[in-house]
């Protein structure tokens, strides 16, 4: 059985988001929470990439000798890819700041349990 790759990708994205929300809500370890939050961002990025997918499409580079009509009809949509790159960079910086704060909190409290640090 051949699964539609785009559909499968959408389901993976949804699973990542739900998993991330679950981790953010139920896990106590701050690092695990951060991993869960990174999953949410990754799921959304995967969703964006999948949006740009075109079955049987070509790379969106206008090669010499290609007719404009063929290009316009079969090139995949470049905008989502450009957006995902920016979104990944933003996500990485957020992640770095989060981990940095956790290091500071660990030095202060000696634990990374969310219940002990963030519960007041």
């Amino acid at each position: 059985m051949i699964i539609d790759i785009q559909l499968a990708s959408f389901f993976t994205a949804a699973a990542l988001i739900v998993l991330g929300l679950f981790a953010a809500l139920f896990l106590d370890n701050l690092i695990k929470k951060v991993i869960g939050l990174a999953f949410i961002g990754d799921g959304v990025n995967l969703f964006l990439v999948t949006l740009g997918f075109k079955p049987g499409g070509i790379v969106y580079i206008f090669l010499p000798g290609m007719s404009a009509d063929t290009f316009a009809q079969s090139a995949s949509y470049p905008l989502p890819y450009a957006m995902v790159l920016t979104s990944i960079v933003i996500g990485a910086s957020t992640l770095a700041v989060m981990l940095g704060i956790i290091i500071m909190l660990y030095k202060k409290h000696g634990t990374i349990s969310s219940k002990k640090i963030l519960d007041d």
């Binding site: 953010a24 701050l30 961002g41 799921g43 957020t94 700041v97 704060i101 956790i102 909190l105």
Partner: peptide, 17 residues
């Protein structure tokens, strides 16, 4: 301030995506 900052950032990491 660190604790509040982390909470705010965690919520940002849910709301912004």
């Amino acid at each position: 301030s660190y604790e509040t900052a982390l909470k705010y950032l965690f919520l940002a990491a849910i709301a912004a995506p």
